[in-house]
């Protein structure tokens, strides 16, 4: 499948070691939300939680421009802020009369559903909530729909997760994230006992066939679960073998290093397989969230657009006992 267009709303990346007041106050990287006026109708915007807003913000500019045969989202948490707001109401009003908006907005499929409503689109519509593989599963889903349905020729696929006080708290307690008062600019190389949290929304317009405007394709998606370290390197080699590529055919390697000491040796191993490739640590620009590989693919798309020769870009990520490899290819012009 071919990437025709990509859109991203993400965190503000500081230019220096000074991370700014927003980080100091929140201990995580937050997106600076755009002014949605003119993008999202205000009568709908008023009900949306952050995740849905972010998702709409990146999706609507695309979805209004192209025909869409499928809407597939990946989100680990959906609107968790709304979810806990509703939960707080339940407890604070002792299961009394409660406002339903938070409840309706908290379901992870609220974004995909809202996109369908706004564009009056009755097409295939799915939402994946498999933690750190939610976005990868959404891509695999689309690949299956392309194979199975002749009438599905294009789709919008998204990766959206918000950080709210509540899921930040919970994921700090489970040890995924860590709260730091100050972190260095290159914090992804640190050996912390958790990752620095971020959030973001990325949306892609993908087509089954190349239509000459784009020759950048997602060539392979490989997902792993509960793998040992040696199995992960084997998986990388297998993927290359399957596509008749050698390590030197990979010009760009982008990994999900996130400053968490538990993952450093896995990333060391995978990065060491590609000594000649340009190395990128995508989370230094988007921080850690469970659908951050959406941002990695966005970056790959930007980078590959500038290439004139055939190039390969490999993304490797691991988090929460899950691993993924996404291979993106630019065909020569």
């Amino acid at each position: 499948m071919y990437i025709q267009e990509a859109n991203h709303i993400g965190i503000h990346v500081p230019d220096s070691d000074d991370l700014g007041n927003i980080f100091l106050e929140n201990k995580c990287f937050l997106v600076q939300e755009p002014d949605y006026t003119g993008i999202i109708p205000s009568n709908i915007l008023r009900r949306m939680g952050k995740a849905v807003r972010l998702g709409m913000g990146v999706a609507l500019p695309i979805i209004q421009k192209y025909p869409v045969d499928a809407i597939i989202m990946g989100t680990a948490n959906g609107g968790l802020e709304d979810c806990i707001k509703f939960l707080n109401q339940i407890v604070e009003f002792e299961e009394g009369v409660l406002t339903p908006t938070n409840f309706v907005q908290s379901t992870p499929n609220a974004l995909a559903g809202q996109l369908a409503i706004l564009t009056q689109n009755h097409c295939y519509n799915n939402t994946h909530t498999n933690n750190a593989l939610s976005f990868e599963n959404a891509l695999i889903d689309l690949k299956l729909q392309f194979e199975d349905h002749e009438n599905i020729q294009n789709a919008i696929v998204g990766a959206v997760d918000e950080i709210s006080t509540y899921n930040f708290t919970i994921d700090c307690l489970t040890g995924i994230f860590i709260k730091k008062d100050q972190v260095a600019k290159n914090w992804v190389l640190e050996n912390y006992k958790g990752a620095i949290a971020g959030e973001g929304a990325t949306m892609f317009y993908l087509t089954k066939h190349s239509n000459n405007t784009s020759t950048i394709k997602i060539k392979a998606i490989s997902v792993g679960l509960l793998l040992d370290e040696h199995e992960i390197s084997e998986n990388v080699k297998e993927l290359l073998l399957k596509h008749q590529l050698s390590v030197n055919d990979i010009q760009f390697i982008s990994t999900g290093r996130n400053g968490d000491e538990r993952y450093q040796s896995i990333y060391d191993q995978v990065e060491a397989l590609f000594p000649n490739a340009a190395l990128n640590h995508f989370k230094s620009k988007c921080a850690e969230y469970k659908t951050a590989t959406g941002f990695a693919v966005y970056e790959a798309f930007q980078t590959l657009q500038k290439q004139t020769k055939t190039s390969h870009y490999l993304i490797f990520n691991t988090l929460n006992q899950r691993q993924s490899l996404i291979l993106i290819e630019k065909e020569s012009n």
Binding site: T129, V223, L225
Partner: peptide, 11 residues
């Protein structure tokens, strides 16, 4: 189970 895992949420 190591082959594949997915979780869907369409309410």
């Amino acid at each position: 189970i190591k082959g594949f895992m997915d979780v869907i949420n369409t309410a």
